[in-house]
Design a binder for these strands. Structure first.
Lengths: 232, 232
DNA sequence: TTAAATTTCTCACAGCTTTCTCACAGGCTG
DNA sequence: CAGCCTGTGAGAAAGCTGTGAGAAATTTAA
């Protein structure tokens, strides 16, 4: 067993290499998912709690570079590119697109594992700074770990979208979040730019958390820009 | 010029490679220091503000592995190992000791630069708080991250255009900005050259931030040229 | 499986804010 | 004084937000 407890997504269409990698990961005690297509990778990332992605650039449906760009629109998970392409420019392009490391085939299990450990170390170092899971503003608080919202001492029921929205604000207390950013974070990047649904969602949320929704105390509107959770 | 403004320490005893690396870094606009020994590396790290270290493992005085371990006792700066040793175990050992990446000689400038960018990206993401986002002149201050303006200790409401204008001045404190430049920055290049809207916008902004708009304290008019935010 | 309940999205509209335009006043310069 | 530039107030036009009602979609329960 290793020190990390991570879910790793293997995106590789060559069955032999996929087996080699998954065998190696299993031997080290990692949990993993596999897929052979770009589309499958995106699906897995959405449905499962993935901590790190091993990505082959040569996929049958889309180019791996597009996958990197797509994922980076909404996620910061470590992406380790595994590719047969050995051109420096390819490497630089992938790394600049947002990949965290680049391994050229053939590679050894030892090196792969070491580089995975580095990537996970980075991730945990980053997350350890934001270990706090309970945030409070005035009477309102949120427990990100338990996924619960409290108003005073009372638990407050929230729908999934309402919770997602509120959590986003608590992760950015005091900052003005633009409507475009909020929509991307709550609905995902494929949703578009229509703000109507956000307005409706915000109305519902305010009805629950604000005493007087027309004159909010917690989430302020910044006209023409977005919204902001006040910082005391 | 690159997007980062980092000091890089090159630890390499082979003069040719050292020159190659420093030449590459200079071409990309990085500042750098060089040393050929482990002892020198530690000295430089203590005396200079180093943001990233390029480390050759084969040093004359101590083994590079010891340098990594030593540095990691007190610093989290990215360490990029550059080595001729191509053994997987060597790589794994260096990475597990705390290095962030491992490049095998010979390597290309392109790849080196891309990997440096990845390392710096990680670092900046981690202490993104350390980037200055609050600027102050007299009683007036702006928080670019939160998108908020303060006058004294009071929050000041600004419209999107007013904020955009004020932020532009704070990014250019003390400099005279021509009306043409301001219009292009605030309204975009497609707007034209009509200054009427800018005059109206400026009047509104001054009404909010100046005690006496007719005799401004913060944003001065430079007749025939443009405007300027005073520098204390 | 179907049915009920909940959640989410869409529409239409009222009310408000922001932005632009116009007209004019005042100051500086030659 | 005339010409140019800047500042300002008023008002129109455009744009943005909040909200209720109901439709559509999703989840939960039976």
């Amino acid at each position: 067993m290793n020190q990390f407890n991570a879910n790793i997504l293997i995106v590789e269409d060559d069955v032999q290499i996929r087996n080699f990698i998954s065998y190696t990961l299993k031997a080290e005690g990692f949990k993993y998912f596999t897929t052979g297509t770009a589309q499958g990778a995106l699906n897995q990332l959405i449905t499962n709690q993935i901590d790190l992605m091993l990505l082959d650039l040569g996929l049958p449906d889309f180019d791996g570079m597009d996958v990197i760009a797509k994922v980076r629109e909404w996620s910061d998970i470590p992406i380790l590119v595994v590719s047969a392409r050995d051109q420096d420019k390819e490497k630089a392009a992938a790394l600049d697109a947002g990949a965290d490391d680049y391994l050229t085939k053939p590679f050894s299990a030892t090196e792969l594992m070491a580089r995975i450990r580095v990537a996970l170390r980075h991730m945990y170092k980053q997350n350890s700074a934001s270990l706090q899971t309970v945030f409070t503003v005035g009477e309102l608080s949120i427990d990100l770990e338990k996924r619960l919202v409290y108003l005073g001492s009372c638990e407050l029921h929230t729908t999934p979208l309402e919770y997602s929205l509120l959590a986003l604000f608590f992760k950015n207390i005091g900052k003005v979040l633009t409507t475009g950013y909020i929509i991307k974070q709550v609905w995902g990047s494929g949703y578009g730019t229509d703000t109507q649904a956000l307005r409706a969602l915000m109305a519902g949320l305010r009805r629950k958390i604000e005493e007087n929704p027309a004159n909010p105390r917690y989430i302020m509107t910044e006209i023409g820009v977005g919204y902001r959770l006040v910082d005391e």
